[in-house]
Structures are given as C-alpha cells and as structure tokens.
Amino acid sequence: MNRYILNDEKTEISGLSLGSWAFSGAKVWGRCNEDEAARTIDYAIEQGINLIDTAEGYGEGQAEVLLGRALEGKRHKVVLASKVHMNNMHGEDLIKACEESLTRLKTDYIDIYQIHWPNEAIEIDETLEAFEKLKRDGKILNVGVCNHGAGALKRMKNYPVVTNQMPYSLLWRVAEQHFNEDLKKNNTLLWAYSPLAQGLLSGKYRKLGEVPMERRNTRMYDSKWGVGRHTDSGFEEEIFHFLSEMHNICDATGFTMVNYAMQFLKTRGNVGSILVGARNVEQLKANIEAYNQEIPKELLVVVDLLSDKLKGFMGTNADLWENSNNGRGRIF
C-alpha cells in the first residue's frame, strides 16, 4: 500500500484510509454493530491502513467513543484524525472541543486535527492561535482542513496545513480546480473523500430510479426530489450517461467500477490518501482489493477522458450540498 509523508516530515500516512461516520449510528447509516465495527478497524490495521478519520459531529461524538474503545492498546499503530465543528472555531470553544474529543477517543493527542467546514464569521487568527496552543500543549500534532477551496485556503494565510479533505471522484472532479500553487508550495496533500460518489461508482446503479431517495441529496441530483438543501438542477442525465459507458468498459475489460474509481484517484499526483467508509470487514476488503488491483495505464486514460467531459457541467463550487452560488467553503 502506498505511503506518504506529511509536510511535518515525521508522520507517514497510508494511501487508503478508513472513515468512521458509518460507525456513528447516524440516521443516514442506521444502527451500528460495535463488534463488527471493531473487527473492521482491526482488519484495516492488519492490512496496512494506519490513517483513521472521525469527527465530533459524527453521531454527536458517538463515532469517537466507538473508536476510543476499539483502539485501546492499539492507539500507537494509527494516525488518528478528527474534526472540529465549524461552530466551535472561536479559540476557547476550539480548545474545549478538542479536549472533549480527546476524552471520547481515550487518547492524549490527535495526529491531525481538522477544520470540518470553514466559518467566515470567525476571525481565522483566533482559530490559528488556538491550534498553536494545542500544539504547544501536545494535544494535537498537525492541523488539517476539510472542504476548503482556493478562497478558504487563502484565509489560512499559508498556515502549515498537512491535508485538505475534499469530495473527489471520477464523477465529481471539481476539486481539481482547487489544486493551486498554495497547496503545492505548502506540500498540502489532498485527502479524497466520497471516492465512490455515495455509491454511484459502486456498480450497483444503472438508472436513476434505482438510487434510494435519501441518497439524492447532493448537487449531482435535481433539487425536485426534495431531500437536499440545494435548489440546483443537478447533472443526472450526464452522470447516468457516463455510468452507462463505464458499465460497458467494465464488461469489456473485466475490471470493476470500484477498481477504476480507486485507481483513478490513486494515480492523481496531489492525492495523499483515499478515504473509504466500511460498515464491515467484507466492504473494507472489497475496497482494499480495488485499491491494490492495478489497471493498465491505457485503460485509465480512456476513463479519465470520459470522466473529464463531466467537468464542464459541474462548475467551480466543490460543495456537494449547497447551491452553486453559496458554497460554505467559498469554493466556487
């Protein structure tokens, strides 16, 4: 499995990482089987995945609680990342939120502490000062961000950010428009989440009608379904045309759609890790196999060009949930 060194020149992360939102018991995922979740975490570590991601907002801290229990005696084997909610960006609030996450995670420090979403209503200097205090106190080692486009990154004032989590996949390539010189200069790695576009690249869906209604809440879908916050018209026709062509390619080449999705991201220069969610060992095993199964470069070029046609429809706002003119991360 690929490994990357963060810009602190000390921390090594795996090219595939495990997310914990599915362990939170949140409504979108349903009830979590804690024993199965613990087995999944153990299997990830056994297979060389050392980067595990969580957030205080996942099930109101329940994902952190589960991780804390599952990692007892194994904490030293992982690079643990968590996120602070955008409403907790004032200095005192941020420090309090971090200390509460540490308690739930049963650890003395967090390897990568991330801003979950930008908050322009709070002065960034106050937030950065709090991060520095947490570093001095040994409670965090590195700072990362999530959902930060070019505008939000400028607010960070070249602060040493090790990772930027953004939605990035064959279907949603808007993040590429935010691979800017600041990222390269600071050696900030892109941490790609939603690599299967919330299941669209799993190979399960051939028609829009097969997608569960609760999954149609992103800007990839028309707002007429009434399950999202945005009012955009979506890109359903273009997406399902692409998926139809991908099914044909998969049938002709013998590689799965998940395999193509993983290998596409694995070969992108700025991607340091691909974040996957898995509710059980079997799901994680399938993701690992897809990540490890290499695809000939000439086939990836064909899929890349096919996917590239979608970019013209997606615009520049990489926020998957808010209107094209109202991205929370100022990423339009």
Score class of each variant (00 low, 15 high):
Arg279Leu: 10
Gly203Ser: 06
Thr253Val: 15
Val271Ala: 00
Tyr205Lys: 08
Leu208Val: 13
Tyr221His: 10
Tyr205Glu: 03
Thr218Met: 09
Thr218Arg: 07
Met262Cys: 09
Glu238Asp: 12
Lys204Glu: 09
Arg216Lys: 15
Ser233Ile: 15
Tyr205Arg: 10
Glu245Val: 11
Leu201Lys: 02
Leu265His: 01
Gln198Cys: 07
Leu208Asp: 09
Pro212Arg: 14
Leu208Tyr: 07
Trp225Val: 10
Glu237Cys: 15
Ile274Ser: 00
Gly272Met: 03
Phe264Trp: 06
Gly199His: 10
Glu214His: 15
Gly226Val: 12
Gly269Leu: 04
Ala197Ser: 14
Ser202Asn: 09
Met262Asp: 03
Leu243Glu: 06
Gly228Lys: 01
Arg229Leu: 14
Asp232Leu: 15
Asn217Val: 11
His247Val: 06
Arg279Trp: 04
Leu201Asp: 00
Thr256Ile: 12
Gly269Ile: 04
Gly269His: 05
Cys250Gln: 08
Gly277Arg: 02
Val227Asp: 04
Val227Phe: 01
Glu236Phe: 07
Gly272Asn: 01
Val281Met: 14
Phe264Tyr: 08
Glu282Val: 15
Arg206Val: 11
Lys266Cys: 01
Gln263Ser: 04
Thr253Pro: 04
Asp222Thr: 08
Asp232Lys: 13
Cys250Lys: 09
Lys224Ser: 11
Gln263His: 07
Ser244Lys: 09
Phe255Arg: 03
Glu237Phe: 13
His230Cys: 08
Leu243Thr: 04
Gly277Asn: 07
Thr231Gly: 06
Glu236Ala: 13
His247Arg: 12
Lys204His: 10
Gly228Asn: 05
Glu238Thr: 13
Glu245Ile: 12
Gly226Glu: 08
Thr218Val: 12
Thr253Cys: 12
Ser244Ile: 03
His230Ser: 09
Phe235Arg: 14
Asp232Ala: 13
Asp251His: 12
Glu210Leu: 15
Gly234Ser: 10
Cys250Ile: 10
Val281Gly: 13
Met246Gly: 04
Ser202Ala: 12
Tyr221Glu: 03
Leu208Ser: 07
Asn259Pro: 02
Ala197Arg: 00
Tyr260Met: 10
Phe235Gln: 11
Tyr221Ser: 02
Gly272Tyr: 00
Met213Asn: 10
Glu236Thr: 11
Pro212Ala: 14
Gly277Val: 11
Met246Leu: 15
Phe264Gln: 01
Val211Cys: 06
Phe255Lys: 02
Thr218Lys: 07
Glu282Tyr: 14
Lys207Ser: 13
Ser223Asn: 08
Ser202His: 05
Ser273Ala: 08
Gly209Tyr: 14
Thr253Gly: 04
Lys266Ser: 01
Met213Tyr: 08
Phe235Thr: 13
Gly277Leu: 08
Ala252Lys: 15
Lys266Tyr: 02
Pro212Thr: 14
